[in-house]
Amino acid sequence: MPTVSMTVNGKSVSGDVSANTLLVDFLRETLGMTGTHVGCDTSQCGACVVHVEGKAAKSCTRLAVQCEGAAVTTIEGLASGGDLHPMQEAFRDNHGLQCGFCTPGMIMAGVDLANRRGNKLDEDTIRNELDGNICRCTGYHNIVKAIAAGAAAMDK
């Protein structure tokens, strides 16, 4: 069984995995970090989005062994102490969730979007960029508002 080592939320971690272990399963099962969700497991819904080397990726469509030596950030890595990340705070302020299942992926996608496209995001940009994240509750309106507000707050 290969041993895989990577940095998750700034901490060095390693574990024995079979080659076919997905990154999301390594995070959830091996590390016990269940903040990253598995929605569709077919690379469509985006509930499993994490950042690999600073870029948003679907952790259900990445092998753990492909992340050997990589820096991975999950939803658990955003808050600092008791302070929520501005994007998390914006989701709370704007009621950007209902059941919350897609939320970890939405927030990780939102942070990635702000990192790539800046802090002033218009509605069209946000909606287009959410192509890879599906929410079955909200109808997206408050998610879009939350990402716009979160991106703006990240500037401060």
Binding site: S43, G46, V49, V52, K55, A56, A57, K58, T61, R62, A109, D112, L113, R116, E129, D131, G132, N133
Partner: peptide, 9 residues
């Protein structure tokens, strides 16, 4: 192509 997360990989 695909979505932003797919395009990263």
């Amino acid at each position: 192509i695909g979505d932003p997360h797919v395009r990263h990989m």
